[in-house]
C-alpha cells in the first residue's frame, strides 16, 4: 500500500510570493537600502537621494520597456541604441536658445523616431517572423549608426532652465521638496496598476505564456507582440529624454552599455525570461538594486572590480531562485 500525500496546501504567504515574484526582489531592495544607509549617513537626505534616483531614471525607463517584450516572450537588444539615437536627436534639436515650442517639437520628433524604430523591430519579429534576439541585435546597429550620423561626437547643450528643473528636487512648499524622479516612479507604478485591469494585460500574458493556445482563443498574438516592441521603443525614448535633461547634452554612444543591464533588471524583478509572467514594478526594483550595489561598493570602500562580480552573483541568484523553489517543492512532496 502506498500513501500518496495530498498536494500541500500552500500558506497564504507562500501564495502571495508565487503570485508576485517581485516581492522577493522587494525584500532584497530593502536589505540593500538598509546596508547603504548604514554606510552612507546622508543617503536619504533630499540632495543625495535626488541625485541617486535621477541617475537611475534612464535605466528605469529602459527596463520597463524591456519588461513588456520579455513578458510577451521576446527580448529587445536594441533599447540602448534607440536611447542613443533619440538622445542624439534631442541634443541636436534642443539648442541653448530653444524655445518651449522648439523643445516640444524636438520631443515629438524623438518620439516619432523611437516609435519608428520599435515598428521596425515589430515588423521583423511579427511579419518576417525572425527571431527577436537576432532581429533586435541587427537593428541595434542601424539605430547606433543613425545616432552617430546625427551627432558624430558628444555635444549639444540644453537651456539651463530646462536641465535645472529636471535635475533639482521639486520644491512643493518653502520647507518641503521631493525628488522629481520619485514622482515619475510613482506615476509609472500607477500606470502599471491601471494597465493590469485592462484586457491588454491578459493578452500580453497569454501571448508570452503559450502563444499557440492564446491564438486559438482569439488573442491576436502578432498584434500584441508588435505592440510590445512599440512600447519598448517608447520607453527607451523616454529614457533618452531623462538622460538628455539630466546631463544637458547628447552622446551618440550613450546607450551602448545600457541594453544588457535592462534585461538583468527585468530578471532581477521577477519577470520570467521565458515569458508569460512579470511585472514592471519588479523591473523598477531591479534597477534600484543594481544602482545601490554600486553605491554600497563605493561607500563600503570595496575595490571597484568587485562590482561586476557582485552583479554577476546577484544575476545568477535571481535566475536560480525560481528553480531552487521548485526543487524544494518537489523534494517536499
Amino acid at each position: 500500500m502506498t500513501t500518496i500525500s495530498a498536494p500541500k496546501t500552500r500558506s497564504p504567504i507562500g501564495r502571495t510570493f508565487s503570485r508576485n515574484p517581485f516581492l522577493l526582489s522587494l525584500i532584497l531592495l530593502i536589505i540593500m537600502i538598509v546596508i547603504n544607509r548604514a554606510l552612507q549617513d546622508n543617503m536619504l537626505e533630499i540632495g543625495p537621494l535626488n541625485g541617486t534616483l535621477r541617475t537611475m531614471m534612464p535605466a528605469i525607463f529602459l527596463a520597463i520597456g524591456q519588461t513588456f517584450v520579455v513578458i510577451a516572450g521576446g527580448v529587445d537588444l536594441s533599447v540602448g541604441s534607440i536611447l542613443s539615437m533619440t538622445n542624439a536627436i534631442l541634443a541636436v534639436m534642443i539648442t541653448q536658445e530653444a524655445t518651449a515650442d522648439q523643445a516640444l517639437v524636438a520631443i515629438l520628433v524623438a518620439l516619432a523616431a523611437g516609435l519608428g524604430a520599435g515598428a521596425l523591430n515589430g515588423f521583423g519579429v511579427t511579419v518576417l517572423r525572425l527571431q527577436p534576439i537576432v532581429t533586435t541585435y541587427a537593428t541595434s546597429f542601424i539605430f547606433a549608426g543613425i545616432a552617430l550620423r546625427i551627432l558624430p561626437e558628444p555635444g549639444g547643450r540644453l537651456p539651463r532652465d530646462l536641465t535645472s528643473f529636471y535635475r533639482n528636487p521639486l520644491q512643493l512648499s518653502e520647507s518641503f521638496a521631493i525628488p522629481l524622479s520619485l514622482i515619475l516612479i510613482t506615476l509609472l507604478v500607477i500606470f502599471w496598476l491601471v494597465l493590469s485591469r485592462t484586457r491588454f494585460k491578459q493578452f500580453l500574458f497569454a501571448t508570452g505564456g503559450n502563444a499557440d493556445a492564446a491564438y486559438t482563443t482569439g488573442v491576436r498574438v502578432s498584434r500584441v507582440k508588435f505592440t510590445t516592441y512599440l512600447l519598448s521603443a517608447l520607453f527607451a525614448t523616454l529614457g533618452a529624454l531623462a538622460l538628455t535633461l539630466g546631463t544637458g547634452t547628447g552622446n551618440p554612444r550613450a546607450g551602448e552599455l545600457m541594453t544588457l543591464p535592462s534585461v538583468v533588471a527585468v530578471v532581477l524583478g521577477g519577470t520570467r525570461l521565458a515569458g508569460g509572467q512579470g511585472n514592471i514594478i519588479g523591473s523598477i526594483i531591479g534597477v534600484l538594486i543594481l544602482g545601490l550595489i554600486g553605491n554600497i561598493i563605493s561607500f563600503g570602500d570595496l575595490d571597484s572590480w568587485v562590482r561586476p562580480l557582485v552583479d554577476a552573483l546577484i544575476i545568477i541568484a535571481a535566475l536560480a531562485i525560481p528553480g531552487v523553489i521548485g526543487l524544494v517543492r518537489r523534494l517536499n512532496q
Binding site: 552612507q40 543625495p48 541625485g51 541617486t52 538622460l243 539630466g246 554600486g294 563605493s298
Partner: peptide, 13 residues
C-alpha cells in the same frame, strides 16, 4: 557617463 556621474555624486555625498 551615467556611471561616472554616480561616481562623482558618491564622492560629493
Amino acid at each position: 557617463a551615467a556611471g561616472q556621474e554616480q561616481q562623482i555624486q558618491n564622492l560629493v555625498n
